[in-house]
């Protein structure tokens, strides 16, 4: 703790508190709470039962009220910490409530009924994780299906992106040919063509190709990313041309040069693109929403949004599935954060 405190409280120069130190401290602590807090809250909430979710004020950790089966009563009764008239506290089970009075029994001695004012009793609560929030949607809803669709779209699109983009980047960085600058210009110019501008005609093209309601209709329009070509080309430009010449003298075919020389040397940039692509495709929402109209084809994002938009939102399931949807991205974040941040800082891309 001492080290942590010293680290948190470290100040500029070490001589007293400059106002910038205070701002820094407030900003960082506030940032920590605001940026992580919601996700943490989501995580805790996802383990709560529907009853606990409906509570106000809410508790942070997932509690359930304890119940006990008491002799002579068919249904399990809810347990309370009751303040007895003599000031002592006992654990009692509630039989029924009449007005502000509660009729309670001792589970161990169910014969005697005790009347307690409802303000003098607190429910007995124990920490309990409602894991059924996670298991049930996979059984009752199609979430396993959605999960599989999302994984399929993400992996396939990323693999195709890597191959197709790296081939194009290779051509654009290591060959001199007519139309090269034109191709580069087109790619750069469309770097900023967003889906929202072309969704109507793109939809018509997808349907004429018979890709409406097909995961390939989600995948194909996303794979020829100008961003990917751009990142890879910039990186390949740093590979010396003499290496290519050397390989040509070594009787390597152009395909071999691409596969055995250029691609291994582009590995760092490919890794960055792969990470980006996984995050992009996993998070894609609008386009799958347009292309996929059959439930069994939904990706996680679409499935989640559809279920959360229903009239009777089953928040306990939605929250759990949101956590599931978040997990891959959080893993990417934890393990590959450095890659991504340097990638963004270097290229200004997202």
């Amino acid at each position: 703790m001492g080290a942590a405190a010293r680290f948190i409280l470290r100040r500029k120069g070490g001589k007293g508190w400059h106002w910038t130190d205070i701002v820094t401290w407030v900003w960082l602590t506030g940032g920590l709470i605001i940026m992580f807090g919601p996700a943490v809250w989501l995580g805790f909430s996802s383990f709560k039962t529907p009853a606990a979710l409906a509570e106000f004020p809410p508790s942070i950790l997932p509690y359930v009220t304890s119940q006990a089966t008491v002799e002579g009563y068919d249904k399990p009764l809810q347990l309370f910490n009751a303040k007895m008239p003599d000031g002592s506290t006992r654990v009692l089970a509630e039989v029924r409530r009449i007005g502000i009075m509660s009729q309670m029994v001792d589970p161990k001695a169910p014969g005697e009924i005790v009347r307690i004012n409802i303000n003098d009793r607190q429910p007995v609560r124990t920490l309990s994780f409602a894991t059924s929030n996670y298991t049930e949607p996979f059984v009752h809803f199609d979430f396993l299906r959605y999960l599989w669709n999302s994984v399929f779209v993400t992996v396939t699109a990323t693999l195709i992106t890597l191959v197709v983009n790296s081939m194009a980047a290779f051509a654009l960085s290591k060959y001199e040919f007519r139309g090269r600058s034109a191709a580069m210009l087109i790619i750069l110019a469309t770097l900023m063509v967003p889906l929202s501008v072309i969704m109507v005609p793109l939809y018509s093209i997808i349907s004429s190709l018979g890709l409406f309601n097909s995961l390939w209709g989600v995948i194909l329009p996303t794979v020829a990313t100008p961003t990917g070509v751009f990142i890879l080309r910039q990186y390949m430009l740093t590979i010396p041309d003499e290496l290519i010449d050397a390989a040509r003298m070594d009787k390597a075919s152009e395909w071999q040069i691409y596969w055995r020389i250029v691609l291994p040397l582009t590995a760092p940039a490919l890794a960055v693109l792969a990470i980006f692509s996984v995050v992009w495709r996993w998070n894609d929402f609008l386009w799958p929403l347009i292309v996929l109209s059959r439930r069994e084809l939904y990706t996680l994002q679409v499935g989640l949004s559809i279920y959360s938009g229903e009239l009777n939102v089953q928040w306990h399931f939605i929250l759990a599935m949101t956590v599931v949807t978040m997990i891959p991205v959080v893993l990417v974040f934890i393990f590959l954060q450095r890659f991504i941040t340097t990638g963004i800082a270097g290229t200004g891309l997202k």
Partner: peptide, 28 residues
Amino acid sequence: AADRGLAMVFQSYALYPHMSVRQNLAFG
């Protein structure tokens, strides 16, 4: 270039950085 039967030594050496020396020699 591949079929002229010539070999070249480059100014930067142009050794394949991801291959061992043996693999470099074997590649051609």
